[in-house]
Write a protein that binds this DNA or RNA. Structure first.
Length: 416
RNA sequence: GGAGGGCUCGCACAGUGGCCUAGUGCGGCGGUCUUGAAAACCGCUGUUGGGUGAUCCCCAACCGUGGGUUCGAAUCCCACGCCCUCCGCCA
């Protein structure tokens, strides 16, 4: 939820942000108008209520002769108050709607444009040279690690079983990620994968991307697409005395993948369900930009420990989620595709999420919303896909990066 | 799934229609006293919105949430949510 004060005091900045996102600038004027209307309506309701209060007191202390006249006037006032309060409710709702329609202010420096207008900030590592790279599905099947056929039989398309070394790989990656997070000062968290509507709403996932989210209609619960949702909701409606707070959440993640028909249909790169270790930070508003860089650095540390070649991209304004002010993706090299593919993503949501979830801290001028940021440490299924693809050897084996070996019984190669 | 109890300003409680403009205790902050501290005493102590307000001032709202009754609701009525206890079922 956007800060009303910013819109009032600096509407041009908000208009510019809308422009660079390719969003509607007119929404800003709509919001300003709704704000003005609301303030007028609230003032009126306030003074009417004040009058009613005073009159109510005189009714209770009035003498029997005065009473009937006062009561009549009080009845009149009561209807006026009721009408004014109805006006206020409408104005409140209109304001909130106008406020929610505007996405977060884009951070200075974000590249303008859409999906293809990202800027590559850095390219890291050596891209492996292979004569005839095989896809991770094939390698996974040979290793007895990934079974998508039975995944489809049991659960449908975009589901899978991890078996044998595949299952061990998942546990190894999760342990490696959690060990790094703990070393860095994150509190490990196992988070619920089902959340209430207001939490899902508050994190901004029921806006433009509502079709992506699984909903359990019988229970008014949603399946999370990332533990970011639960970790953001964790401190909702709280005033946080000590910042920063950093959590590393592990949970299953569920995505309907509506509208991605035909994309990545093979293998476990794009699936309806996967497990993920997610970093989530609560920081003071003026710390957000630095924290974002730190999250990116920790994501890179994990990529480096897996010995992957990757690039870091600065996602363009038009491709940002509504909560994000800026987003960096790390895309790792998939030899079989001859392309970089997204493995992790870190977003600075500034105070946008916190304002909606009512998460504050004691500031110099009273309670102020905190900033929230999230970053992927390890999206397991996709990381396994990348590891098999990236570290495949000509003889059909798969190289195990040194950092992962302690979690796999010291194995240096898979498939021997 | 069934039965019962609860939800009030950080915490514990009081408050069953108008002296509630929500009180008391604890905690916290400031002060008096003290070489210092404790104790004692005194004062302060929540959130939100509005007033052409930026720590003061004034007004309004907030007693789990949403409706309703009433001139007037923490208090009465209805619905819902959550927590706790017990029973049943269960990894």
């Amino acid at each position: 939820m956007i800060d009303l004060k910013t819109v009032r005091e600096n509407p041009d900045r908000v208009r510019a942000s809308q422009r660079v996102r390719g969003a509607d600038e007119g929404l800003v004027d709509g919001l300003l108008a709704a704000d003005e209307t609301r303030r007028a309506v609230v003032s009126r309701a306030d003074s009417l209520r004040g009058e009613q209060k005073t009159l109510g007191r005189s009714v209770s202390t009035a003498s029997p002769d005065e009473r009937p006249g006062l009561l009549e006037r009080a009845k009149e006032l009561a209807t006026q108050v009721k009408a004014a309060e109805a006006d206020q409710d409408r104005a409140d709702a209109a304001l909130r709607e106008a406020q929610l329609a505007i996405p977060n202010l884009v951070e200075d420096g974000v590249p303008p444009g859409g999906e293809d207008d990202f800027v590559t900030l850095e390219t890291v590592g050596t891209v492996p040279q292979l004569a005839a790279p095989r896809e991770h599905t094939e390698i996974g099947a040979d290793l007895g690690a990934i079974d998508t056929e039975r995944g489809a039989k049991v659960s449908g398309a975009r589901f899978y079983f991890l078996t044998g070394i595949g299952a061990q790989l998942e546990l190894a990656l999760v342990n490696l990620a959690m060990a790094q997070a703990e070393r860095t000062g994150f509190t490990p968290v196992i988070a619920p994968a089902l959340v209430r509507p207001e939490i899902m709403e508050g994190t901004g996932f029921l806006g433009a991307h509502a079709a992506e989210v699984y909903r359990l209609a019988d229970d008014e619960l949603y399946l999370v697409g990332t533990s970011e949702v639960a970790l953001a909701g964790y401190h909702s409606n709280e005033i946080l005395p000590d910042l920063p707070l950093r959590y590393a959440g592990f949970s299953s993640c569920f995505r309907r993948e509506a509208g991605s028909y035909g994309k990545d249909t093979k293998g476990i790169i794009r699936v309806h369900w996967f497990d993920k270790v997610e970093m989530f930070s609560y920081v003071a508003a003026d710390e957000a930009r630095d924290e974002h860089q730190r999250l990116l650095a920790w994501e890179r540390e994990f990529m480096d420990s897996l010995e992957l070649a990757y690039r870091v991209i600065d996602v363009a304004a038009g491709d940002l989620g509504s909560s994000a002010a800026r987003k960096f993706d790390i895309e790792a090299w998939f030899p079989s595709q001859g392309a970089y593919r997204e493995l992790t993503s870190t977003s600075n949501c500034t105070t946008f999420q916190a304002r909606r979830l009512n998460i504050r801290t004691k500031g110099e001028h009273g309670n102020e919303p905190v900033a929230t940021l999230n970053g992927t440490l390890c999206a397991v299924a996709r990381t396994i896909a990348c590891l098999l693809d990236h570290h495949q050897q000509p003889d059909g084996t798969v190289y195990v990066p040194a950092a992962l070996r302690p979690y796999l019984g010291g194995r240096e190669l898979l498939g021997t």
